[in-house]
Amino acid sequence: MNALLTLTRAVARKELVLMVRYPVNTLSNLFLTYLFFVLIFFGGQAVAGPALTASLDGIIVGFFLWTMASLSFGYLAWSVTAEAQWGTFEQLYMTPFGIRTIMLVKAAVGTTINFGWGLGMLLLLLVTSGRSLQVDLGTVLPLGALTLASAVGIGFCFAGLSILYKRIEDLLSVVNFALVGCIAAPVESVAWLKAIPLAQGSYLLRRTMDGGIRLWEIPAPEILLLVGTAIAYPAAGYYVFRWAQRRARRKGILGHY
């Protein structure tokens, strides 16, 4: 346990150092997300007027979730790509923990950091729009963590693909925008859409932050479905990651870039 805590602290320290050392890259990603919201907000007000105002709370919650999901999804794939570029990826296999444990810890640390970025973005969105939401941390934090688990699962999948195919940046960009569709999926009218990544969590977060519903007031089947997706997608993504890792080792391209 002490060794795992040491690993967690080391990974967290490394991520914080990288963010501080490359501030332009860190802040530009969040600025572009914020700029995207500003364009929709002010442009939508000019075009749609009251129609936009009626759905603004849902848009804010969606952007809050998309910020965290896009960071969590891309984090693992970009991490593998960066380690390969630096020539340190193969060294992760020689640690006492092994690559799998390190990637799991990276996923946990990255999700925690991205949750902080998401809350900061939420504050900016509320200040910009002049709106207010009911943010009960006892409800938002567990729902947010369960929701982001599916994004982490997708991240594991694409981390595996980056081991095999190295340059998948364009594909990551496409999938990043596909996450918007998952978050905005009309799960109220099409029930089976609740099974896709992020959809059920987005629906529950909108209900809690817009309607003031607490965690214990959500029907148990809705929570169980969210827990199911939070388990299934990371498990599937981790399986793909392990498969890609073994295939890359057999082909002798593990450390290539």
Rank of each mutant, 00 (worst) to 15 (best):
A3E: 15
L5M: 14
L5E: 13
R9P: 00
V11Y: 12
A12C: 11
V20G: 05
N25F: 04
T26G: 02
L30V: 06
L35G: 01
V38W: 15
F41N: 10
G43Y: 14
G44P: 07
A48S: 13
L56M: 08
L65E: 12
M68N: 04
F73D: 07
L76Y: 09
V80R: 05
A84F: 07
Y93I: 00
M94W: 03
M94F: 10
R100W: 06
M103D: 05
V109G: 07
G120F: 09
V127G: 01
G130L: 02
V135T: 08
G138M: 03
A145H: 02
A145T: 10
A145N: 04
L146I: 06
V152P: 00
V152R: 01
F156K: 01
N176C: 02
F177P: 00
F177S: 03
A178D: 03
C182G: 01
V187I: 14
L193A: 11
L193G: 06
L193I: 06
P197W: 11
L198P: 10
G201C: 09
Y203L: 02
M209F: 07
L215D: 11
P221K: 14
E222P: 01
A230I: 05
G237W: 09
F241I: 05
Q245V: 04
R246K: 11
R249L: 13
K251G: 00
G252D: 12
I253D: 06
L254S: 15
